[in-house]
Design a protein around this nucleic acid. Sequence first.
DNA 1: CTGAAAGCGCTTACAG
DNA 2: CTGAAAGCGCTTACAG
Lengths: 340, 340
Amino acid sequence: MEKKVLLKDIAQKVGSSIALVSYVLNGKDGRVGAAMAAEIRRTAEELGYRPNLVAKSLQSGRTHTLGLIVADISNSFFSRVARIIEDEAKQFGYTVIFGSTDEDAEKSRLLTDAFLNRQVDGLIIAPAASTEEQLQVLKKRKFPFVLIDRYFPSLPVNSIRTNNYESAYEAAEHLAGTGHQRIALITYQHAGMAHFSEREKGYLQAVKDCHLPEYLAKIPYRGMEDAMVACMNELLVTGSNTDALLFATHSLAIEGLKQINRLGIKVPDQLAVVSFDENDAFDLYGSPVSYIRQPLALIGKEAVRLLVETIREPGMKQTQIVLENELVIRKSSGRVVPQK
Amino acid sequence: MEKKVLLKDIAQKVGSSIALVSYVLNGKDGRVGAAMAAEIRRTAEELGYRPNLVAKSLQSGRTHTLGLIVADISNSFFSRVARIIEDEAKQFGYTVIFGSTDEDAEKSRLLTDAFLNRQVDGLIIAPAASTEEQLQVLKKRKFPFVLIDRYFPSLPVNSIRTNNYESAYEAAEHLAGTGHQRIALITYQHAGMAHFSEREKGYLQAVKDCHLPEYLAKIPYRGMEDAMVACMNELLVTGSNTDALLFATHSLAIEGLKQINRLGIKVPDQLAVVSFDENDAFDLYGSPVSYIRQPLALIGKEAVRLLVETIREPGMKQTQIVLENELVIRKSSGRVVPQK
DNA sequence: CTGAAAGCGCTTACAG
DNA sequence: CTGAAAGCGCTTACAG
């Protein structure tokens, strides 16, 4: 590495004090003649001066860095949101560091600690199960953070979520409306994660209102693929004989569709399918998959906006924002398909 | 925010110096009695001490942060690599900050500058076109970095790449071997980006060796969707009447397959398809898509390993690592399908 | 064995 | 209008 250029070097070269150079380079002129200011700027440019943001941060107590904690950055839902967050953060002068929890509370704790030690100015978190107390600690310390995707009903904090209950209800009702009698919900063993339990409740209420039986399959996060094999087998071949599946999230749907293909079951003729989240695979599937579109761009933008507000105004009261999903109906939900 | 706990607070409470507390908390005992050491540790724990990594960084000149610069973090290729890099970096005690260039050289420059100002210890870069001089500057300053995915033949620097030429050759040859006569390559207008030009050369040599005509379609990165409509129309309907397509990257393939579906063309009966990169959409497509699998895990791991080595040993000579891709043959490449 | 002091690269209130 | 000095929270060579 080449030797770094410091304020000192500029000051020496132009024959002024370090303080003056700092003022000029930070645009706080008025303290100095225009000629000197120009000379300082020119010299900084010439030497290729690079402000050391670490030193600035130590001084100011601000790092202009946001921490993003998600289940898995390689999951398309999170990587898309991450991209929005990156762009929006940049607008406000922030850089983003990220980490994946794999839905593990201990990893979440370690990540949060690491990010706090690094003095991030705030956190955007898609909290894993059993991390409520970690969030409680952050809240008590008045550390700025915003939840996305997931949330805890008992913990009123800044959060951006979507109308999961209504969307699941609407999707299940739609499947009933297209003539299906045995509609199953495939979800994760969610240990009370609110976004999933809301989807579950919405589904349950819908089938109840339609006077249809419930079929609820809960798949573990770890070992999901194997569990899905057994699940599809039971729902479609050996047991329940369901005629429609609602997937609570795209990763389950993708794995489920692979099994459906393997079993040679035709969508939508033998089986209707609807899933939460959008995905390229849904578009390219033989019968394009009907899905519940979450407003990713809005989620990311609102999360950053709310976080930055909270950083600037620490006393601010907590805000919960609920965004609307949209049911996009395509071929996979079967009969009665509207023109689209 | 609660008031922060400092070394000073611990020193005061146990009645020692700040220096001593620092030594103990950094495991440099031997300077102090076991009793005092234990007392210091206990007090740190009790007060919830959090080392300020910004102060440590200013002191040490190391931030233990790596910058990851890619075209777009929401692109599944990059988000998957990002996940590997995250995990591998954590093994070495590093955190990752990321940024997307959108294949724009100016954005790339701004990102690089921002990351350097933040004093990242090193960079992992999938360089955009026309960023060769930026890399040249980094190299001259002896700043540690590693290229992934893309590279510049004229710029010998640390890089992890794959055998693009051979893979493209193999894929085109495979399409010829399954009886196709009019094989097109769909690639981006790559402005000389080596990974794409190698794929192009491999394809060209293969069709030449097989005595088949060339069909080369180059799509712009911006406005790709519209260009793809025109491209598929020309290749499949109005003009060339090609019977096999090789896509140079997954984003092109996904968009191309959407158009193929729209045109009602049957894969593989009317058209064979092979693409670079793996993707859920390829698995769920009516005829699972043959693809060239790049070793993502190895790419990420080797990139971090090489970068960390370079950080530790700045004088080290540049290393170029070439990894092997694998052609995964499935239904979309047509006839003569091996059992799999 | 332990503490006082200098220093990492900046910013900014304070004197002149 | 300008500079010397203190300080951000740590680490570590130096004295005792």
